[in-house]
Design a protein around this nucleic acid. Structure first.
Lengths: 336, 336
DNA sequence: TTGAAAGCGCTAACAT
DNA sequence: ATGTTAGCGCTTTCAA
């Protein structure tokens, strides 16, 4: 069967020193040159690897941050994770990444999984359906909320101003003369999307554009439902001249629907999407999008979690609001 | 500061039983009803969470699989991880996901990190530059290779036949009458890409098409270098009529280059890409691609790792070769 | 059914 | 500079 793990005890025995000396050597504390050599040789020949689990049990430190995201399929979160990992790594921390697949029950389980793994901190983009649990855990383990911000949770957080993002998305279209504007949203799924939705509505109101519920499509964040919802809206006889699509994956779905119906962007339908600058550039025509600075978001989350680890969980709560960018492509037609 | 963790000892004390009884209760072993009640109540009021780390130290089981991928930015790996996580979860296992950002040094570190975390298994898409380390670890921890298969590593593995994939990609173009075909590759970076490259070359040879090194662009897997490489090739005076692009991210780069040069697909340039069926459908025109069945790959990796955990590391090595699909879009022009 | 006690691999006083 | 030892939170015999 598999080789059994080598322990420090065996290394110590082979090197002819005590287990404490090996531990000290591993910690970079000075040991006699001869011992150093013998320990190094023993470690090499035995193939010893320090058991970080046992170590952490004693030190109460794992140098590991648990990260929980809604899905591995959202490019947005993957980019955040990528920059977050960079940030942590540079400071001697690693990350263990989990996803809850947009399921609140699964989120609950994964929160336990991570918390019980003795991580030094938790970063979570929550459904908002497990606030009690997160609240409880956050009293024992430093916790930072990211992107999705459940109501009334007094914890460090990083996000953009989603209301404003929704507002600005609509405004881009309104300023180009559009008044018949549809929205593809998923307000039920995440507060992020709900706020964008609210911002969108507010922009219409502020410009005296009447809200037509029929022009608002609901999906579950993924591209296929967004495609169905878009197809429905775009097939109405009073078809909107423009669409705001409230996240990246749904933007993909909306474009699929547009293609399927044989419509042209922006001639037949203008579109303002969200996220993924790279891709917005290869889609023809280049998309006008609200771009969240994923790199900054990831780094900020990393900074907050390491800072929080040094402080009382109930003091100086920081809500970092990151500025989004507007990327102007060619997917919006000037009307009038 | 943060609340201190509640231990089993405290639960036992509050419930007026021994720590062993609490442990048994937690394991679902029968305890007296009255004790059961009191333990449950204590756990609830104290907010006790079992320390899985300490538990694992004793049981030598973590029900956790470590997964190491080259990057969080490759959609391909994220989809594999997603299906892998589903598979494991259904069987009581969790996954901790790490990335090494395409850096062999980082791969080495992350391998240690994961191995030292007492995971029950490791799934890795390796650079191929740390074979000794993987070899060593695999003798102590069940290990499965995925996608990228370093030469001569006798370990369980899952992948497609990349040589054949490269061959077929070229063949699609050849059969439509193309003889002036370019390739955007990254043969240095991963054996996967090298094999696709070799398959591509073989297809040209088998059809008596001369290989022009000038028509082979090298990048580092990401879209921006692929864009530069594509631009160069497409700016030569004897411009190829078609391009094979050996992975998804580079396909994005190639399309960016094509757009930038003002060329039309497929009128001016035909293209066969790799991966990401969803996206190939929203790009206009719909792309012809070689599609790797990510779901199957993830599940197969999950199955292999759980099987391997029960067996000797040196017996019955399985190399699972998954069939790829060819998705015909409209990005290839029929010549002549 | 329950509890006492040894020990998983490691660290950190403390003593030498 | 090194070794002895208690103990991190938990499981698991073994005896009661």
């Amino acid at each position: 069967m598999f080789d059994k793990d080598i322990t420090m005890r065996e290394v110590a025995k082979m090197a002819g020193v005590s287990i404490a000396t090996v531990s000290k050597y591993l910690d970079g504390i000075k040991v006699k040159d001869i011992n150093k050599e013998r320990i190094e040789k023993s470690i090499e020949t035995l193939g010893y690897r320090r058991n970080e689990i046992a170590r952490g049990l004693k030190t109460r430190k794992s140098y590991t941050i648990g990260v929980l995201v809604p899905s591995f399929k959202h490019v947005f979160f993957m980019e955040i994770i990528s920059s977050l990992e960079d940030y942590l790594q540079a400071r001697g921390y690693s990350a263990i990444i989990c996803s809850y697949k947009e399921s609140p029950e699964e989120e609950d389980k994964k929160l336990s999984f991570i918390a019980n793994k003795m991580v030094d901190g938790i970063i979570v983009a929550s459904t908002g359906k497990n606030n009690d649990k997160i609240e409880k855990i956050s009293r024992q383990i430093p916790t930072v909320l990211i992107d999705r911000l459940p109501e009334g949770m007094e914890l460090d957080s990083v996000s953009i101003d989603n209301f404003k993002a929704g507002y600005e998305a609509a405004k881009i279209l309104i300023e180009k003369g559009h008044t018949n504007i549809g929205l593809i949203s998923a307000a039920e799924v995440a507060d992020t999307l709900r706020k964008r939705h609210e911002g969108f509505i507010q922009a219409l109101k502020d410009n005296n554009i009447k809200i037509n519920e029929k022009k608002i499509g609901y999906s579950n964040l993924n591209f296929s439902e967004a495609m169905t919802a878009s197809q429905k809206i775009l097939s109405e006889k009073d078809r909107p001249t423009a669409l705001v699509v409230a996240n990246y994956d749904m933007t993909i779905g909306a474009i699929m629907a547009i293609n399927k119906l044989g419509l042209q962007i922006p001639e037949d339908i203008s579109i303002v999407g969200f996220d993924n600058l790279e891709l917005s550039k290869i889609i023809k025509p280049e998309l006008t999008i609200i771009e969240q600075p994923v790199k900054v978001i990831g780094e900020t989350a990393g900074r907050l979690i390491l800072e929080r680890a040094k402080k009382d969980p109930r003091t100086e709560i920081k809500h970092e609001v990151i500025q989004f960018n507007i990327h102007n492509g060619f997917s919006v037609k000037q009307l009038k």
